[in-house]
Structure formats: structure tokens, C-alpha cells
């Protein structure tokens, strides 16, 4: 996976705002030409992020049933002027149905691709830093934003570690002869107990050590913290946000 493209380097806040703007726009457009334009814009984003197109398409595959459902539901159940050989018996395909179905399928498709572009080009840690900035106005209402983002960072940071830990425990119990593949729902669930108890206890022992280490290094709840990676608004961010703002009016012409 490439990690050093123009899109990867953008400020996560800029990417987030652009995503919201495009998503809202998608709900308003209906003309085929505008969908084509939106498709081109998204293709341009994918190109400049250096992510292979095949990888993006692979991400859509689990949603094929959703597209089929949306398309067919509209094709066959929208009242209106029938297309020539129909209605055959009770099956009826209407002109309005085909147009609506295509528009809605395209809309879902483009929204899924857009939102996956944000998570593909931004690390969870960057997103959390952005979240901290976005939420900071809430400090006025006595909401502990700093503590919350610290917890968010810990969560993000420990997911891969705990995933590894879980895999290790699963393998250990497998080598002792647990067979997870047989039995009914409750029987199978009970087999997970020897995995979950060590996993939970290890996590909470780790939590205790971590908390003591944090307090020893001077962490105090509710205080302002500086961070290693500061978000900076650069020229490329300015360029990106201006081009988004310039392209959006075309969708409302």
C-alpha cells in the first residue's frame, strides 16, 4: 500500500470536510452527466492517492447484493410507463423504475467509494488527532475532551497488540486440542471461555501497568497535553480545499 501520496499528506480535517461536502452533493444530483462528473472527480482522487484501482473495487464486492437489491427493487416495482415487451404477466419494468434504480445504485456506490477513500488514506491515529480538534469546542460545556481523545488514542494504539495476543492464545488453546468447529451455538460459545478469560485478564493486567506508568510520567486527568504530531495547515491543504469548493458549484448548475 502506498503511503506517501498527495492525498495521504493532506490534513485529516481537510479530507473529512471534503468527504462531507461530496456526500451531501451526491444526495442532490440526479442528471447522468453530473454522476459522470462525480465519477471522474473520484477517479482523480483515487489516481492521486496512488491506491491501485483494483484494491478499491475489491472493497466494493461485499456490497454487490446491496446494489442488486436496490437496482432490482426499483426496476420491477416502480409504477409508470412500461418499456416495450413488458408487462409480461405480473412482471413490469418501467422507464421511471430503470432511471430511479440506476441513480440510486450509482449514489450508494459512489458514497461507499468516497468514504473508503478517507479510511484508506488516513491512519486511525491521524483521524483521532483531527477528532480532538473538532471536539475541542465542547470543552466549554465541561466535557472532558482531552481525556476522551487520550482514551481514543489508547484504544487505537492497542487494537493491533490485542489482536496479536488473541491470535496467540487461540493458537495455544488449539494446540491443546480445542476444536472450535463442532457443536451447536451454545456449545461452541462455551469453548471460547478458555480463550476469553486469559485475553481479558492479560488486557487488564496491562491496563494496570500502563496506568501506573502514565501517572509516574506526569499524566493528569483533565489537563491540556501537547502532542508529538501537530496538525499544520499547509499550501497543499489550501490547494485541495479550494479545488473542492471550486468544483462543487458545477454539480448545482
Amino acid at each position: 500500500m502506498p503511503q506517501d501520496s498527495f492525498i495521504h499528506g493532506l490534513d485529516p480535517r481537510v479530507k473529512f470536510i471534503a468527504l462531507i461536502l461530496f456526500m451531501v452533493t451526491l444526495f442532490f444530483i440526479e442528471a447522468p452527466l453530473k454522476f459522470l462528473l462525480m465519477g471522474l472527480v473520484i477517479l482523480l482522487i483515487i489516481q492521486s492517492s496512488k491506491i491501485p484501482l483494483g484494491f478499491v473495487i475489491k472493497g466494493i464486492i461485499p456490497f454487490v447484493w446491496l446494489f442488486l437489491f436496490a437496482a432490482f427493487a426499483h426496476f420491477f416495482f416502480t409504477p409508470g410507463t412500461s418499456i416495450k415487451p413488458f408487462p409480461i404477466w405480473f412482471i413490469n419494468v418501467t422507464f421511471e423504475g430503470v432511471t430511479n434504480g440506476t441513480i440510486i445504485t450509482l449514489r450508494i456506490l459512489l458514497i461507499i467509494v468516497l468514504s473508503s477513500m478517507l479510511t484508506l488514506t488516513t491512519t486511525p491515529l491521524e483521524l483521532t488527532t483531527a477528532l480532538k480538534r473538532v471536539l475541542s469546542p465542547l470543552k466549554r460545556f465541561k466535557i472532558p475532551v482531552n481525556d476522551f481523545t487520550m482514551m481514543m488514542m489508547l484504544t487505537i494504539r492497542f487494537v493491533p497488540i490485542l489482536l496479536l495476543e488473541a491470535q496467540r492464545i487461540i493458537n495455544a488453546q488449539r494446540s491443546r486440542g480445542i476444536n472450535f468447529e463442532t457443536g451447536g451455538l451454545i456449545k461452541r460459545a462455551k469453548k471460547l471461555v478458555p480463550i476469553l478469560i486469559p485475553l481479558f485478564n492479560l488486557s487488564f493486567i496491562r491496563a494496570e501497568e500502563l496506568a501506573i506508568a502514565m501517572v509516574c510520567r506526569g499524566y493528569a486527568t483533565g489537563k491540556e497535553r501537547s502532542s508529538f504530531r501537530e496538525l499544520r495547515f499547509s499550501t497543499s491543504d489550501l490547494f485541495a480545499i479550494t479545488s473542492v469548493i471550486l468544483v462543487i458549484p458545477f454539480f448545482f448548475l
Binding site: 489508547l154 484504544t155 491496563a207 496506568a211
Partner: peptide, 22 residues
Amino acid sequence: VEIKRVLTMVEIALAAALAVAL
């Protein structure tokens, strides 16, 4: 008291991490 507070926060965060992992 502060250690208890931080410990609770860290435990909640790690539980959420465990949940995402699971």
C-alpha cells in the same frame, strides 16, 4: 485517587480496544 481515575480510564480504553480486536 488520581491513579484510580487514570486506571479506570485506561481499562475502559483497553476494553474498547479488545472489542475492536474481537
